[in-house]
Design a protein around this nucleic acid. Structure first.
Length: 225
DNA sequence: CTCTACGTATGCCATATTGG
DNA sequence: CCAATATGGCATACGTAGAG
């Protein structure tokens, strides 16, 4: 990024996001799970369950699992059909059940697999995680950023849309992720993920956008009117 | 021509949001 | 209110370009 042209923009973005407060009622499965459990297995499963699913249903599916005592040994002995039923509410339950099974199998071979990821360089940890079928960039980045505090920036559909509009250009996953990693103050990186999703849900919606209320409107290149 | 490395389109499924 | 459409991450199949 060119320096002086964008220093101003950088400051404005950081300030706007720092000042933005999440509304009550906004739910983020990762936030809730990481607050209540410190087991990385729980966290990663919650992220898998939230793929292409609203957080309300993902959380319900997650709690269904927790109720039955969630650990990889139990999941290993559980039939695929049974697991599918338990997480059905989250949608995409067939592929998610397989991914969870796969992960449980991984952990039975190496119990510390997830914990040890934090000791590795981000790129390596990311490669290892995404090599598991059913875990992509977004899932890996979110897990490593939340659990290991790595300076990665997960990009979901909301964040991609918000960012593309903000800069008024098409961007791929890596471009969006890199943009935020470069622009955001390090201590804002984690929280900004939630705040940008909030902006995407509430104002920068796919259709019927509410630019007049959007906290990022005055730095947005796209803004209608 | 074959092999690889990318790029693109589509299905998966439930829910949310839209237009009518 | 309901039907149509959009959303969401990933795997898969298929397509294309370049290297050997």
């Amino acid at each position: 990024m060119q320096k002086d042209t964008n220093d101003f923009l950088r400051e404005k973005i950081n300030k706007a996001l720092r000042d933005l407060n999440l509304e009550e009622g906004q739910r983020f499965i990762v936030k809730e799970v990481s607050k209540n459990f410190d087991d990385p297995f729980y966290l990663l499963i919650s992220i898998i369950l939230s793929q292409n699913t609203n957080d309300r249903n993902a959380i319900e599916a997650f709690l269904n699992l927790v109720e039955r005592g969630l650990d990889f040994r139990k999941l290993n002995s559980m039939s695929l059909d049974e697991l599918e039923e338990i997480i059905r509410i989250s949608g995409l339950y067939k592929s998610k059940a397989e991914t969870i099974k796969r992960l449980a199998g991984f952990l039975s071979k190496d119990e510390l697999f997830l914990k040890n990821l934090c000791k590795k360089p981000p790129e390596e940890a990311r490669r290892e995680l995404t090599s598991i079928k059913g875990i992509g960039k977004k899932t890996a980045d979110l897990f490593l950023s939340v659990y290991c505090n790595m300076p990665l920036f997960p990009v979901d559909r909301h964040i991609k849309r918000v960012t593309e509009r903000l800069l008024d250009k098409e961007m791929d996953y890596e471009e969006v992720s890199q943009f935020w990693r470069e622009v955001l103050d390090r201590n804002l990186l984690k929280e900004a993920h939630y705040k940008l999703i909030y902006v995407g849900r509430k104002f920068c919606r796919p259709k019927g956008e509410k630019c007049d209320l959007c906290p990022l409107a005055d730095i947005c290149r796209w803004r209608s009117e």
